[in-house]
Protein backbone atom coordinates (compact mmCIF):
# COMPACT_ATOMS: atom_id res chain seq x y z
CA UNK A 1 0.00 0.00 0.00
CA UNK A 2 2.69 2.43 0.98
CA UNK A 3 4.72 1.49 -2.09
CA UNK A 4 1.77 2.27 -4.34
CA UNK A 5 1.19 5.64 -2.71
CA UNK A 6 4.77 6.65 -3.22
CA UNK A 7 4.68 5.74 -6.89
CA UNK A 8 1.43 7.37 -7.82
CA UNK A 9 2.62 10.95 -8.36
CA UNK A 10 5.41 9.49 -10.46
CA UNK A 11 2.95 7.69 -12.71
CA UNK A 12 0.81 10.77 -13.15
CA UNK A 13 3.77 12.86 -14.23
CA UNK A 14 4.76 10.14 -16.67
CA UNK A 15 1.27 10.05 -18.21
CA UNK A 16 1.58 13.75 -19.00
CA UNK A 17 4.56 12.95 -21.21
CA UNK A 18 2.83 10.06 -22.96
CA UNK A 19 1.94 10.52 -26.63
CA UNK A 20 -1.48 12.02 -27.26
CA UNK A 21 -2.68 8.80 -28.93
CA UNK A 22 -2.23 6.69 -25.82
CA UNK A 23 -3.64 9.19 -23.39
CA UNK A 24 -6.90 9.46 -25.29
CA UNK A 25 -7.09 5.75 -25.92
CA UNK A 26 -10.26 5.02 -23.89
CA UNK A 27 -12.51 6.55 -26.55
CA UNK A 28 -11.28 4.48 -29.45
CA UNK A 29 -11.06 1.44 -27.18
CA UNK A 30 -14.85 1.47 -27.23
CA UNK A 31 -14.60 0.25 -30.82
CA UNK A 32 -13.73 -3.12 -29.31
CA UNK A 33 -17.31 -3.80 -28.35
CA UNK A 34 -18.74 -2.72 -31.67
CA UNK A 35 -18.67 -6.25 -33.18
CA UNK A 36 -20.58 -7.59 -30.19
CA UNK A 37 -23.04 -4.73 -30.31
CA UNK A 38 -23.55 -5.23 -34.03
CA UNK A 39 -24.39 -8.92 -33.60
CA UNK A 40 -26.66 -8.06 -30.71
CA UNK A 41 -28.53 -5.46 -32.74
CA UNK A 42 -28.89 -7.64 -35.82
CA UNK A 43 -29.88 -10.94 -34.22
CA UNK A 44 -31.70 -9.83 -31.07
CA UNK A 45 -32.85 -6.21 -31.17
CA UNK A 46 -33.98 -5.98 -34.79
CA UNK A 47 -35.93 -9.29 -34.71
CA UNK A 48 -37.47 -8.27 -31.41
CA UNK A 49 -38.89 -5.08 -32.95
CA UNK A 50 -40.06 -7.00 -36.03
CA UNK A 51 -41.73 -9.47 -33.68
CA UNK A 52 -43.73 -6.71 -32.03
CA UNK A 53 -44.82 -5.65 -35.53
CA UNK A 54 -45.81 -9.14 -36.70
CA UNK A 55 -48.04 -9.61 -33.66
CA UNK A 56 -50.39 -6.99 -35.13
CA UNK A 57 -50.66 -8.81 -38.49
CA UNK A 58 -52.12 -12.00 -39.90
CA UNK A 59 -48.80 -12.94 -41.56
CA UNK A 60 -48.57 -16.63 -42.54
CA UNK A 61 -44.80 -16.92 -42.26
CA UNK A 62 -43.80 -17.13 -45.93
CA UNK A 63 -45.82 -14.83 -48.21
CA UNK A 64 -44.63 -11.30 -48.91
CA UNK A 65 -47.96 -9.70 -47.98
CA UNK A 66 -49.97 -9.52 -44.80
CA UNK A 67 -52.81 -7.48 -43.35
CA UNK A 68 -52.72 -5.33 -40.23
CA UNK A 69 -55.33 -6.72 -37.90
CA UNK A 70 -54.83 -4.54 -34.85
CA UNK A 71 -55.18 -6.28 -31.52
CA UNK A 72 -57.00 -9.40 -32.79
CA UNK A 73 -54.06 -11.71 -32.06
CA UNK A 74 -53.91 -10.47 -28.49
CA UNK A 75 -57.68 -10.74 -28.06
CA UNK A 76 -57.54 -14.26 -29.48
CA UNK A 77 -54.66 -15.18 -27.18
CA UNK A 78 -56.44 -14.11 -24.01
CA UNK A 79 -59.60 -16.06 -24.88
CA UNK A 80 -57.80 -19.18 -26.17
CA UNK A 81 -58.31 -22.12 -23.76
CA UNK A 82 -55.22 -23.84 -25.22
CA UNK A 83 -53.12 -20.84 -24.26
CA UNK A 84 -54.49 -20.87 -20.71
CA UNK A 85 -53.51 -24.52 -20.39
CA UNK A 86 -50.08 -23.85 -21.92
CA UNK A 87 -49.39 -20.96 -19.53
CA UNK A 88 -50.29 -23.24 -16.63
CA UNK A 89 -47.93 -25.92 -18.01
CA UNK A 90 -45.13 -23.39 -18.46
CA UNK A 91 -45.42 -22.35 -14.83
CA UNK A 92 -45.39 -25.97 -13.68
CA UNK A 93 -42.25 -26.59 -15.74
CA UNK A 94 -40.59 -23.42 -14.47
CA UNK A 95 -41.57 -23.22 -10.81
CA UNK A 96 -42.17 -26.94 -10.22
CA UNK A 97 -38.80 -28.09 -11.43
CA UNK A 98 -36.97 -25.15 -9.83
CA UNK A 99 -38.55 -26.05 -6.48
CA UNK A 100 -37.75 -29.76 -6.75
CA UNK A 101 -34.25 -29.17 -8.13
CA UNK A 102 -33.33 -26.85 -5.30
CA UNK A 103 -34.79 -28.95 -2.50
CA UNK A 104 -33.12 -32.15 -3.71
CA UNK A 105 -30.02 -30.24 -4.80
CA UNK A 106 -29.68 -28.69 -1.33
CA UNK A 107 -30.11 -32.08 0.34
CA UNK A 108 -27.39 -33.56 -1.88
CA UNK A 109 -25.12 -30.56 -1.36
CA UNK A 110 -25.44 -30.81 2.44
CA UNK A 111 -24.83 -34.56 2.25
CA UNK A 112 -21.77 -34.23 0.01
CA UNK A 113 -20.33 -31.39 2.10
CA UNK A 114 -19.39 -34.04 4.67
CA UNK A 115 -16.38 -36.30 4.81
CA UNK A 116 -17.35 -38.93 2.23
CA UNK A 117 -14.93 -41.06 0.26
CA UNK A 118 -17.28 -41.43 -2.70
CA UNK A 119 -17.89 -37.70 -2.89
CA UNK A 120 -16.14 -37.01 -6.20
CA UNK A 121 -17.76 -40.01 -7.89
CA UNK A 122 -21.23 -39.16 -6.57
CA UNK A 123 -20.91 -35.55 -7.70
CA UNK A 124 -19.74 -36.63 -11.16
CA UNK A 125 -22.67 -39.00 -11.58
CA UNK A 126 -25.34 -36.60 -10.34
CA UNK A 127 -24.07 -33.82 -12.61
CA UNK A 128 -23.62 -36.05 -15.67
CA UNK A 129 -27.21 -35.69 -17.05
CA UNK A 130 -26.81 -31.89 -17.12
CA UNK A 131 -24.22 -32.05 -19.89
CA UNK A 132 -26.21 -34.42 -22.10
CA UNK A 133 -28.59 -32.98 -24.67
CA UNK A 134 -32.08 -32.52 -23.13
CA UNK A 135 -33.50 -34.01 -26.32
CA UNK A 136 -31.56 -37.24 -25.78
CA UNK A 137 -32.49 -37.18 -22.09
CA UNK A 138 -36.14 -36.99 -23.13
CA UNK A 139 -35.75 -40.07 -25.33
CA UNK A 140 -33.98 -41.96 -22.54
CA UNK A 141 -36.86 -41.29 -20.15
CA UNK A 142 -39.37 -42.17 -22.82
CA UNK A 143 -38.23 -45.78 -22.31
CA UNK A 144 -39.42 -45.50 -18.71
CA UNK A 145 -42.79 -43.92 -19.37
CA UNK A 146 -43.76 -45.80 -22.55
CA UNK A 147 -47.19 -47.39 -22.49
CA UNK A 148 -46.13 -50.68 -24.07
CA UNK A 149 -43.05 -52.20 -22.50
CA UNK A 150 -42.00 -49.09 -20.58
CA UNK A 151 -39.73 -49.75 -17.61
CA UNK A 152 -42.18 -48.22 -15.12
CA UNK A 153 -45.13 -50.14 -16.49
CA UNK A 154 -43.18 -53.38 -16.21
CA UNK A 155 -43.15 -52.77 -12.46
CA UNK A 156 -46.77 -51.58 -12.31
CA UNK A 157 -47.88 -54.73 -14.13
CA UNK A 158 -46.51 -56.85 -11.29
CA UNK A 159 -49.24 -55.38 -9.08
CA UNK A 160 -51.99 -54.37 -11.53
CA UNK A 161 -53.62 -55.77 -14.67
CA UNK A 162 -53.46 -52.64 -16.81
CA UNK A 163 -50.46 -50.50 -17.72
CA UNK A 164 -50.71 -46.78 -16.93
CA UNK A 165 -50.57 -44.27 -19.77
CA UNK A 166 -48.30 -41.76 -18.05
CA UNK A 167 -47.50 -39.67 -21.12
CA UNK A 168 -50.86 -39.95 -22.88
CA UNK A 169 -52.89 -38.77 -19.91
CA UNK A 170 -53.22 -34.96 -19.77
CA UNK A 171 -53.37 -35.14 -15.96
CA UNK A 172 -49.98 -36.76 -15.57
CA UNK A 173 -47.84 -35.96 -18.62
CA UNK A 174 -46.87 -32.45 -17.49
CA UNK A 175 -45.61 -33.84 -14.18
CA UNK A 176 -43.63 -36.62 -15.83
CA UNK A 177 -41.85 -34.03 -17.98
CA UNK A 178 -41.22 -31.92 -14.87
CA UNK A 179 -39.63 -34.94 -13.19
CA UNK A 180 -37.31 -35.51 -16.15
CA UNK A 181 -36.25 -31.86 -16.22
CA UNK A 182 -35.66 -32.02 -12.46
CA UNK A 183 -33.57 -35.17 -12.75
CA UNK A 184 -31.50 -33.69 -15.54
CA UNK A 185 -30.62 -30.35 -13.96
CA UNK A 186 -30.69 -30.92 -10.21
CA UNK A 187 -26.93 -31.45 -10.51
CA UNK A 188 -26.62 -27.79 -11.46
CA UNK A 189 -28.39 -26.74 -8.26
CA UNK A 190 -26.28 -29.18 -6.28
CA UNK A 191 -22.95 -27.93 -7.68
CA UNK A 192 -23.84 -24.27 -7.13
CA UNK A 193 -25.10 -24.86 -3.58
CA UNK A 194 -22.12 -27.06 -2.76
CA UNK A 195 -19.79 -24.27 -3.91
CA UNK A 196 -21.79 -21.90 -1.68
CA UNK A 197 -21.45 -24.23 1.31
CA UNK A 198 -17.71 -24.58 0.84
CA UNK A 199 -17.05 -20.84 1.15
CA UNK A 200 -18.76 -20.67 4.57
CA UNK A 201 -15.89 -20.46 7.09
CA UNK A 202 -15.68 -23.50 9.38
CA UNK A 203 -15.09 -21.18 12.36
CA UNK A 204 -18.71 -20.00 12.15
CA UNK A 205 -19.99 -23.50 12.72
CA UNK A 206 -17.48 -24.11 15.49
CA UNK A 207 -18.45 -20.87 17.23
CA UNK A 208 -22.14 -21.76 16.98
CA UNK A 209 -21.45 -25.24 18.38
CA UNK A 210 -19.58 -23.78 21.32
CA UNK A 211 -22.56 -21.48 21.94
CA UNK A 212 -24.65 -24.64 22.21
CA UNK A 213 -26.43 -24.62 18.84
CA UNK A 214 -27.72 -27.99 17.61
CA UNK A 215 -27.52 -29.23 14.02
CA UNK A 216 -30.89 -27.72 13.09
CA UNK A 217 -30.32 -24.32 14.59
CA UNK A 218 -26.82 -24.22 13.09
CA UNK A 219 -28.41 -24.76 9.69
CA UNK A 220 -31.08 -22.14 10.30
CA UNK A 221 -28.91 -19.41 11.72
CA UNK A 222 -25.51 -20.02 10.10
CA UNK A 223 -25.72 -22.08 6.92
CA UNK A 224 -29.00 -20.86 5.46
CA UNK A 225 -28.34 -17.10 5.65
CA UNK A 226 -24.79 -17.46 4.33
CA UNK A 227 -25.98 -19.68 1.51
CA UNK A 228 -28.40 -17.01 0.27
CA UNK A 229 -26.30 -15.75 -2.70
CA UNK A 230 -25.87 -19.30 -4.02
CA UNK A 231 -29.60 -19.96 -3.60
CA UNK A 232 -30.37 -16.84 -5.64
CA UNK A 233 -28.24 -17.96 -8.57
CA UNK A 234 -29.46 -21.54 -8.46
CA UNK A 235 -33.16 -20.66 -8.22
CA UNK A 236 -33.06 -18.02 -10.95
CA UNK A 237 -31.09 -20.27 -13.32
CA UNK A 238 -33.51 -23.16 -12.80
CA UNK A 239 -36.63 -21.01 -13.11
CA UNK A 240 -35.46 -19.57 -16.43
CA UNK A 241 -34.42 -23.03 -17.64
CA UNK A 242 -37.82 -24.50 -16.78
CA UNK A 243 -39.89 -21.65 -18.23
CA UNK A 244 -38.27 -22.03 -21.65
CA UNK A 245 -38.40 -25.84 -21.67
CA UNK A 246 -38.54 -27.14 -25.22
CA UNK A 247 -36.37 -30.18 -26.04
CA UNK A 248 -37.63 -32.59 -23.39
CA UNK A 249 -41.26 -31.90 -24.30
CA UNK A 250 -40.56 -32.42 -27.98
CA UNK A 251 -38.81 -35.72 -27.25
CA UNK A 252 -41.34 -37.17 -24.82
CA UNK A 253 -44.80 -36.08 -25.97
CA UNK A 254 -44.31 -33.64 -28.86
CA UNK A 255 -46.65 -31.31 -26.87
CA UNK A 256 -49.48 -33.84 -27.06
CA UNK A 257 -52.01 -35.23 -26.75
CA UNK A 258 -53.42 -32.05 -28.32
CA UNK A 259 -51.58 -29.21 -26.62
CA UNK A 260 -51.96 -30.81 -23.18
CA UNK A 261 -48.22 -30.88 -22.41
CA UNK A 262 -47.09 -27.91 -24.53
CA UNK A 263 -45.07 -25.05 -23.08
CA UNK A 264 -45.17 -21.56 -24.56
CA UNK A 265 -42.05 -22.34 -26.59
CA UNK A 266 -43.36 -25.57 -28.13
CA UNK A 267 -46.77 -23.97 -28.76
CA UNK A 268 -45.06 -21.16 -30.64
CA UNK A 269 -43.14 -23.71 -32.71
CA UNK A 270 -46.30 -25.67 -33.55
CA UNK A 271 -48.25 -22.56 -34.51
CA UNK A 272 -45.50 -21.32 -36.78
CA UNK A 273 -44.32 -24.49 -38.50
CA UNK A 274 -47.38 -26.68 -38.09
CA UNK A 275 -50.15 -24.19 -38.82
CA UNK A 276 -48.40 -21.30 -40.62
CA UNK A 277 -49.97 -18.97 -38.06
CA UNK A 278 -46.89 -16.72 -37.87
CA UNK A 279 -48.59 -13.55 -36.65
CA UNK A 280 -50.20 -15.43 -33.79
CA UNK A 281 -46.98 -17.34 -33.06
CA UNK A 282 -45.13 -14.01 -32.78
CA UNK A 283 -47.81 -12.86 -30.33
CA UNK A 284 -47.20 -15.97 -28.21
CA UNK A 285 -43.47 -15.21 -28.37
CA UNK A 286 -44.11 -11.73 -27.00
CA UNK A 287 -46.24 -13.15 -24.21
CA UNK A 288 -43.41 -15.54 -23.38
CA UNK A 289 -40.96 -12.63 -23.33
CA UNK A 290 -43.16 -10.76 -20.84
CA UNK A 291 -43.81 -13.79 -18.63
CA UNK A 292 -40.17 -14.89 -18.42
CA UNK A 293 -38.80 -11.41 -17.79
CA UNK A 294 -41.43 -10.54 -15.17
CA UNK A 295 -41.07 -13.86 -13.32
CA UNK A 296 -37.25 -13.87 -13.44
CA UNK A 297 -36.87 -10.26 -12.38
CA UNK A 298 -39.37 -10.79 -9.56
CA UNK A 299 -37.40 -13.76 -8.30
CA UNK A 300 -34.10 -11.94 -8.70
CA UNK A 301 -35.41 -8.86 -6.89
CA UNK A 302 -36.98 -10.80 -4.06
CA UNK A 303 -33.99 -13.12 -3.56
CA UNK A 304 -31.46 -10.27 -3.71
CA UNK A 305 -33.41 -8.35 -1.09
CA UNK A 306 -33.55 -11.48 1.04
CA UNK A 307 -29.76 -11.81 0.76
CA UNK A 308 -29.20 -8.40 2.32
CA UNK A 309 -31.83 -8.80 5.01
CA UNK A 310 -30.31 -12.13 6.04
CA UNK A 311 -26.73 -10.95 5.99
Amino acid sequence: MSVRNREQPNLKSLVRFMPEKLRNSPAWLNLLYVPALLLFGLFILYPFIRGLMYSFTNWDGYSQTFKWIGLSNYRRMFSDPDVARVIRNTFIYGLGSALLQNIIGLAYALFLNQNIRMRALTRTIIYLPAIISPLIMGYIWYFFFQYNGGAINDIILLFADEPVNLLGDPDTNVWMITIVNTYQFLGVAMVILLAGLQVIPKEFHEAATIDGAGTLSRFRHVTWPLLAPAVTVSVVLNVIGGLKLFDVITAMTNSGPGYSSASLSTLMYQLYFGRQDAGYAATIGNLMFVIISVVSFTFLFYLKRRETSLA
Binding site: K244, F289, I292
Partner: peptide, 27 residues
Protein backbone atom coordinates in the same frame (compact mmCIF):
# COMPACT_ATOMS: atom_id res chain seq x y z
CA UNK B 1 -22.20 5.09 -22.08
CA UNK B 2 -20.23 1.93 -21.34
CA UNK B 3 -22.32 1.20 -18.26
CA UNK B 4 -25.42 1.41 -20.42
CA UNK B 5 -23.93 -0.88 -23.07
CA UNK B 6 -22.99 -3.38 -20.37
CA UNK B 7 -26.53 -3.16 -18.99
CA UNK B 8 -28.01 -3.96 -22.40
CA UNK B 9 -25.84 -7.05 -22.80
CA UNK B 10 -26.42 -8.37 -19.31
CA UNK B 11 -30.18 -7.82 -19.27
CA UNK B 12 -30.36 -10.28 -22.17
CA UNK B 13 -29.13 -12.97 -19.74
CA UNK B 14 -32.62 -13.26 -18.33
CA UNK B 15 -34.70 -13.41 -21.49
CA UNK B 16 -34.22 -16.46 -23.71
CA UNK B 17 -33.78 -15.62 -27.41
CA UNK B 18 -36.31 -18.32 -28.23
CA UNK B 19 -39.04 -15.70 -27.74
CA UNK B 20 -37.99 -13.93 -30.96
CA UNK B 21 -38.01 -17.11 -33.02
CA UNK B 22 -40.62 -16.05 -35.59
CA UNK B 23 -39.03 -12.74 -36.68
CA UNK B 24 -35.56 -14.27 -36.39
CA UNK B 25 -36.53 -16.98 -38.84
CA UNK B 26 -37.67 -14.39 -41.34
CA UNK B 27 -34.46 -12.41 -40.88
Amino acid sequence: LNRAVYGVFVSALIVPPLTILVPLYKF
